[in-house]
Every structure is written in structure tokens, then in C-alpha cells.
């Protein structure tokens, strides 16, 4: 219930009483935790799928991850609502998760590490 209202909270510059604060908290969580999750997920996805030596793929994935986290944080605060902020992160996460699982399966024949 509470979360439902908070997610509908619009732009961070609009005054909305305490719901504005909740909306900001939801976005901060998206930027810090969601952004970090997306960054690590992309580092893993690139590490197992990039067509290069594995040390190179791991390095490239980690360097890209730093940029991904920064970009995620920008997206989260640029999005029109807190719900869209999380939604955008999820949309980006799905193909990355598929890449990571596919790469893992190709390398080891197993989905889980």
C-alpha cells in the first residue's frame, strides 16, 4: 500500500509532502542497490560472453560495470517516476541476466555456478 503510493510519486522537484520524501528514498535505493546490482550483473554478463580471452573479458566487464553504475544512477533520478526508475533498471537487467546465464551454461554446462 505504502510502496504503491510511493512509486506513483512523480518528479523529485515536485512538492508532494512526505510522499516526496518516500519517492526520493525509493530512488536512492534504486540508484545505490539497483545500480550496483545492474553494474555487477553487466560485469558478469560481459565476462562470460565477450569473444576474447577470459582475463580480458573479465577486465572489460568490470570497467564497463563502473560506467553502468554511474549511468544507472543518472537514469534513476532522470526518470519521470520512482516506479519507472526501477522499471528501467529491470528492463536493462533482463537481457544481461540472460547473457550471464547463457555464458555460464556454455562454459560449464550448468546454469548455476
Amino acid at each position: 500500500m505504502t510502496v504503491g503510493v510511493a512509486l506513483r510519486v512523480r518528479g523529485i522537484n515536485e512538492s508532494g509532502g512526505r510522499w516526496r520524501a518516500v519517492g526520493i528514498a525509493v530512488r536512492v535505493a534504486a540508484a545505490v542497490l539497483g545500480g550496483y546490482a545492474l553494474a555487477t550483473l553487466s560485469s558478469v554478463a560481459l565476462a562470460v560472453t565477450l569473444p576474447m580471452a577470459r582475463a580480458d573479458a573479465v577486465l572489460t566487464g568490470m570497467m564497463a560495470g563502473v560506467a553502468v553504475h554511474a549511468a544507472s544512477a543518472i537514469w534513476v533520478f532522470a526518470a519521470r517516476s520512482a516506479a519507472r526508475a526501477w522499471g528501467g533498471l529491470l528492463v536493462a537487467a533482463l537481457p544481461l541476466a540472460a547473457m550471464a546465464l547463457l555464458g555460464q551454461w556454455q562454459a560449464t554446462g550448468r546454469i548455476l555456478p
Partner: peptide
């Protein structure tokens, strides 16, 4: 970054 995002190397070097 090796401390921040170690999972790539763990997955690539099982």
C-alpha cells in the same frame, strides 16, 4: 574494481 565487482572473475574462473 576487483574488490567492488569480483563476481565476473569468479564466474569466468570457476
Amino acid at each position: 574494481m576487483l574488490m567492488l565487482m569480483p563476481w565476473g572473475m569468479q564466474v569466468a574462473y570457476p
